[in-house]
Write a protein that binds this DNA or RNA. Structure first.
Lengths: 216, 216
DNA sequence: CGCTGTTTTAAACGATCGTTTAAAACAGCG
DNA sequence: CGCTGTTTTAAACGATCGTTTAAAACAGCG
C-alpha cells in the first residue's frame, strides 16, 4: 500500500463512517480498521481527528468550488447574451449545481448523497468553530449562487433569497441525508421502485416553486 | 429538590446539551452537572442514556401528538362544511402544525427550535433503530397530515405528497436546527433584526408554493 | 419516635477514547 | 549494497465514558 493509498483509504472509510454514525461516534479505531491501516496512521498523516474531518470535506469541496465557479461563469455569459423570462432558468441553475456536484463525485449519486449527509451533520451537529471554517472557506461560492439568483429573479429582494436559499439547502440536505431510508419507505408504501435521480427531478421543481413563492 | 424536580432538571439539561453538541458528545457527566444532580441520577431514574434520549423526545411528542390530532379533527370539520379553493388552506394547515407545536412548548419559540434541532439530529445522526422507534411511535400523526393534504389538493398524486412532505420537513428541520446561526448571519448581512416568528412566516409560503410545484 | 421504602451520594468498575512513543520496516538513491 | 528519510507497527499513555455498587440521607406514615 503506497502512501497515497493509505491516505485515500482513510478518507474513504472516514467519510462513510462519519455519514453513517456521526463524527462523535466514529472512533479512529473504527476508521483505521475499516481502512485496513494502523491506528497511528491518522495522526501521522492528518495530525488529529479534527484535521481528518476537515480533510474529508476539502477532498470534495475544493474541486467542487473550482468547477462550479467555472460552470457558473460560462452559463452566466449565455444568459446575459440572450436575456429571457426568468422561469426556466431557475430550474436550470438548480440542476447545474446538482449535476456539477455529481460530476465531482464521478457521477456516483451515492457519493453525492453521502457528502450532503456529512454537510448536514456539520451544520446541525458540529461545534460552531467548524461551521465557521466551512463558511469562511467556501462561503464565496454560496454568495455567488445567491447573486445569480437575484439576477434571474429581479423582483425578489435579497432578503427573500437569503431565506429561500437556506430553506432550499435544508430540503436538499435533509432529503439526501436520509435518501436510503426515504426510498425504502417509498417502495414499501407504493410498491414501486425509484432511483435517486428521479428524486432529484422531483426536488428541483419543489425548490424552484418555493423560490418563486417567498417573494413578499 | 423533589423527585420530579430532579427528573425535569435532567430532561431540561439533556435537551439543551443534545441540541447543542449532539447525542454522542453529550456525556452523562455534562448533563448531571448542568442539572445540578448526582451522576447516578440518570441511570436511577431513566435506566440508561438511551432511555433518557427517548424520554426527551416523549416529553414533547406525546402531548404534541394528542393535541395535533384534536386540532386537525376540529379543523377538518370546518373545511368539510365549506369546501372551497385549495389555495389558502395549505398555508393554514402548515401554520396549524407550527403553532400547535409552539403551544406545546408554552409558545416559547426557542423551545420549538431546540426540539426540531433534536429531531433533525435523530434523523441524520442517530442509528436506524432510533429512527424506527420514532416512526413506529409517532408515524400515525405524520400519515394523518399527509392524508389531509391529499384532501386539500386532490389533483396531486400520493407520490407527489410523499416527496413534497419530506422536502418540506427537511427545509423546516434544517432551518430551525440552525436558526440562531441563520439569524446572526442575516443580521450581519443586512443590518436588520429579525425574530423567529418572522422566519416562520417566510417559510410557510415557501413550503406551500413548493407543495403546489411538485405535481407532475 | 421508629420503621420502611425511595432517593441521593461518593467511589469505583471495566471499556474505550485520541494521542504519543520508540522501534521496525520500507523506499529511493548514490 | 549502504545510507537516509519516510512510513508502519505494536504498545502504552492519561483521560473520559456509561454503568454499578453500597452506604448515607431523606420522606412518609403508623
Amino acid at each position: 500500500m503506497t502512501q497515497s493509498e493509505t491516505v485515500e483509504n482513510i478518507l474513504d472509510a472516514a467519510e462513510r463512517l462519519f455519514a453513517e454514525i456521526g463524527f462523535g461516534d466514529t472512533s479512529l479505531r473504527k476508521i483505521t480498521s475499516k481502512a485496513g491501516v494502523n491506528l497511528a496512521a491518522v495522526n501521522y498523516h492528518f495530525g488529529s481527528k479534527e484535521s481528518l474531518i476537515q480533510a474529508v470535506f476539502a477532498r470534495f469541496l475544493d474541486p467542487f468550488t473550482v468547477r462550479i465557479l467555472e460552470v457558473l461563469d460560462e452559463k452566466q455569459k449565455s444568459w446575459n447574451s440572450q436575456p429571457g423570462s426568468e422561469s426556466p432558468e431557475l430550474e436550470e441553475l438548480l440542476r447545474l449545481v446538482v449535476y456539477t456536484a455529481a460530476e465531482i463525485n464521478d457521477y456516483d449519486v451515492r457519493k453525492s448523497a453521502t457528502f450532503l449527509r456529512l454537510l448536514g451533520l456539520a451544520y446541525t451537529q458540529a461545534q460552531s468553530h467548524f461551521r465557521n471554517y466551512i463558511n469562511n472557506k467556501y462561503g464565496v461560492v454560496f454568495q455567488r449562487i445567491v447573486a445569480i439568483m437575484q439576477e434571474l429573479c429581479p423582483t425578489h429582494s435579497p432578503q427573500d433569497f437569503y431565506w429561500a436559499t437556506h430553506f432550499a439547502l435544508g430540503a436538499t440536505i435533509f432529503t439526501m441525508s436520509g435518501i436510503d431510508a426515504l426510498i425504502e419507505m417509498y417502495e414499501e408504501d407504493f410498491d414501486k421502485s425509484i432511483v435517486v435521480h428521479e428524486v432529484v427531478e422531483r426536488l428541483v421543481p419543489f425548490l424552484a416553486a418555493g423560490f418563486r413563492g417567498v417573494a413578499k
